[in-house]
Amino acid sequence: MVSGPPPSDYFAIFGIEKKLALDLEDLQRRFYSNSREWHPDRHARASAQQLAWAEEASATLNDAWRVLRDPVARAEYVLKGEGFDIGEQRGKDVPPELLEEVFELNMALEEAREGDANAKSEVVRALAKFEGLLSEIDSERDTLFVEYDAASARDTLSRLRALLNRRKYLQNLVRDARATLA
């Protein structure tokens, strides 16, 4: 007997409350134990309907695991659920406080591509700086996670979204710079 199709909510499928700061070890334990229960291989001899439900449960669980174990994807999932737009545009505008440095990095990248050895060391220096910024953003993100879990304030989510946009921008920048160096 089956009690129905699985929940589509990613937190519910793990049997946990909606939270941004998650214990990843606990999440993994739940992923494995739910997989043991629901994976279609465990129900190869069941009826077609039961197998379909197992498949559905397993697929949702897999998607949820992929999203929730990654802090950025997890935050985006919660933001989207709360009606925030996390569309394509994000990550394309230069954060104003970084304008100058980004401009300098882009110049250096240009020169490095043309084979300027000095520019290369400048790229390395800028890269280190931006990577430092990235890890600062990540710890700020974790703080916002805790803040949201405590009070579920919409304002926290707005700030989180802005932070993630900035992160996305920086990450693209770092990726390009690394590609140029390689």
Partner: peptide, 15 residues
């Protein structure tokens, strides 16, 4: 606690 439970009864005998 998991919210969703499947109780898979009457499975065919294994071949």
């Amino acid at each position: 606690m998991s919210l969703f439970q499947i109780d898979f009864g009457n499975e065919e005998t294994p071949h």
